[in-house]
Simulated assay, not measured.
Amino acid sequence: MHRVFFVITFVAFFVSGYAQELNCNLVVNAQKTGNENVQVFRTLERQLTEFVNNTTWTNKDFKPQERINCSMIITIADYDTDVFQASIQVQSSRPVFNSTYSTPVYNFNDRNFTFQYLEFQNLVFNPNQYESNLVSVLTYHIYMILGMDADTFQLNGGDEYFKQAQTILNYSQQENFKGWKLEDGTQSRFVLIDNLMSPTFEQFREVMYNYHRNGLDVMYENPKKGKQEIATAIGTLEKLHNKRPNSFLMRVFFDAKSDEIEEIFSDGPNVNITNVVSSLNRIAPTYASKWRNISY
């Protein structure tokens, strides 16, 4: 597995005194507008890049090599003066122990992203108060990145970050922007954090920990054991799927992990993967073409 996974992220003014947590590659793509060379798009990209990389989001001390690689690609579909219609693709990854490989952790294509922006305006984040939809959407995803990453290193390690994402969601519901409320569809920011914080989905967070710490992180020393742990994690996902079929949380997981899972079970030491493939076809049929490539 030699893919390089990038990450793009956004920032708001918060706390100083600790090392920044994110290593951000941010792109504002305005080709769909037919006016991608308009200065405001370049200014927006530059401000948001600084906003992410120069902001501290937690009270943890991150060493430079510990910063989370992430990416956010904002695609502008249309704009009128200071109102922008867009989508944002958010991805993050984390290194696998004793290897040069980075594993994808978070992958969310957020299609409900309308915001107001005036060139050179101050971007301010208040953890307990609404400022703008631009800031709310970006900071929501930042805390999702932090929470998902922390869950891969420690069981339920992302609690404090998910709670902040939920706080952002709660105070952003006062406005009329989409993605923050139950009625905004089954693949929204609301649904994602609601799933993660629900006791019904507590097994998902166990999977995030076991898949990474007991699976990927031991493969340098014992590849077969690592593969078996990942197979067990997939079995746990099937049990969760049986209780709550077709959950958005499962969709986000496989959007990030499908390529990796295909590679893991198509190479290396042999394990009994008949049940694994059966489980994958049940819980993620969208990726059936990838599961067919797994040889066993």
Rank of each mutant, 00 (worst) to 15 (best):
H2F: 10
H2P: 07
F5R: 00
F5I: 04
F6D: 14
V7S: 11
T9D: 01
A12N: 13
F13Y: 05
G17P: 11
A19Q: 13
L22V: 08
C24E: 04
L26Y: 13
V28L: 13
A30I: 06
G34L: 04
E36Y: 11
E36L: 12
Q39C: 08
Q39M: 11
E45C: 12
L48K: 14
L48F: 10
E50N: 12
V52E: 07
N53P: 06
N53Q: 14
N54H: 06
T58N: 04
K60A: 11
D61R: 09
R67G: 00
I68Y: 06
S71N: 11
M72F: 08
M72N: 12
I73P: 14
I74F: 07
I74G: 08
T75S: 12
I76K: 06
D82E: 08
V83P: 02
Q85R: 04
V90I: 11
V96I: 15
N98E: 14
S99Y: 04
Y101E: 11
T103M: 05
D110F: 01
F115V: 08
Y117D: 12
Y117R: 06
Y117H: 14
L123R: 08
F125N: 09
N126S: 11
P127E: 12
Q129N: 12
V137W: 08
I142R: 11
Y143K: 10
I145S: 02
A150S: 09
D151Y: 00
D151A: 03
D151V: 03
N156L: 13
G158V: 04
D159F: 04
E160W: 01
F162M: 06
Q164P: 00
Q166C: 03
T167P: 00
Q174F: 03
K178H: 10
K178W: 02
W180C: 07
K181N: 13
E183R: 11
G185W: 10
G185C: 06
S188W: 05
R189L: 03
F190E: 00
I193S: 00
N195S: 10
M197A: 09
M197F: 05
F201T: 09
F201A: 15
Q203H: 13
R205A: 03
E206P: 00
N214I: 01
G215Y: 00
V218Q: 02
V218I: 15
Y220M: 02
Y220R: 03
K227C: 01
Q228W: 06
E229F: 01
I230G: 01
I230D: 03
I230E: 03
I230S: 03
A231R: 05
T232L: 07
A233M: 01
G235C: 06
T236D: 06
T236A: 02
L237C: 12
K239M: 05
L240R: 07
K243L: 12
R244S: 07
P245F: 05
V252E: 13
A256Y: 06
K257H: 12
K257E: 12
D259V: 10
I261Q: 05
I261W: 10
E262G: 06
E263G: 00
E263H: 05
S266K: 04
D267K: 04
P269H: 05
V271A: 08
V271M: 06
N272L: 11
T274N: 14
T274C: 13
T274M: 10
N275I: 09
N275F: 14
V277L: 13
V277S: 10
I283S: 01
S289D: 05
W291K: 10
N293Y: 01
